[in-house]
Amino acid sequence: MPDTAPAFPESRDVQRLALDQLLTRRSVGPLQEPAPEGADLDLILDAGLRAPDHGKLRPWRFVIIRGDARLAFGERLAEAAAKRDPANGAALGERYRAWVRRIPMLIAVGAVVKDGNIPEIEQVLSAGAAAMNMLNTIHLLGYGGMWVTGANVYDPAVNALLGFEAPSHLIGFITVGTPATTLPPMARPDRADHVVEWAAPS
């Protein structure tokens, strides 16, 4: 006969504490060193690799950009901006250089889209789920992060720089570090504004 006994109360308490902590997650802009490394970074990446994945295609790809590589990456972003927008490229280039200097670590997240029976949208959603898993883990480990998109994410030159050729593509950058300031709790949306319970038409 299968064991259907509920979890021990102590385990339930631990689970609730973890969920309470998860529900405090928010995007964190101002970041500073240290960024996660070693076992902490492995946990973050492993969480990404546990995303739902229809067809076991494993479409997720993560590119870590840290250390001096950030500065080189900032230069390439500046070059891409100048080609996209010659009139404003210089100003945009300085903005991107400053951005990567402020961020201890970037994780570029992309979907390696594969032909077959699984629609592209499901592969992209799987990569998005991987990004969310990583953001949650970043938060639970005491770090801060933010999911960033924008022109660079949709620029084929930036995609190619990071190894994504169409139909594969970036879905965003996760900025990672230690929160530079203590941020106040965020007001969360009211469930009633977003949740309905379906009932069969009579």
Rank of each mutant, 00 (worst) to 15 (best):
T4M: 08
A5I: 06
P6H: 03
A7M: 14
D13T: 14
L22A: 13
R26Q: 13
P30G: 03
P30E: 09
L45S: 00
P52M: 03
L57Q: 13
W60P: 13
W60F: 09
F62W: 07
V63T: 07
G67Y: 01
G67F: 08
A72Y: 10
A78Y: 05
A80R: 05
R84D: 15
R84V: 11
D85A: 03
P86A: 08
N88T: 00
A90T: 12
G93V: 01
G93K: 02
E94K: 15
M105L: 02
I107C: 08
V109E: 08
G110T: 03
A111G: 06
V112I: 10
G116N: 04
P119N: 01
E122K: 03
S126T: 11
A129R: 04
H139F: 05
G145L: 03
N152M: 15
Y154W: 05
Y154F: 09
D155L: 03
V158P: 03
L161Y: 08
L162T: 13
E165I: 08
E165K: 15
S168Y: 06
I171K: 01
I171Y: 02
I171P: 04
T175L: 00
T175A: 01
T182V: 13
P184Q: 12
P184Y: 11
P189D: 07
P189R: 07
D190C: 10
H194G: 00
H194T: 14
V195P: 11
E197W: 14
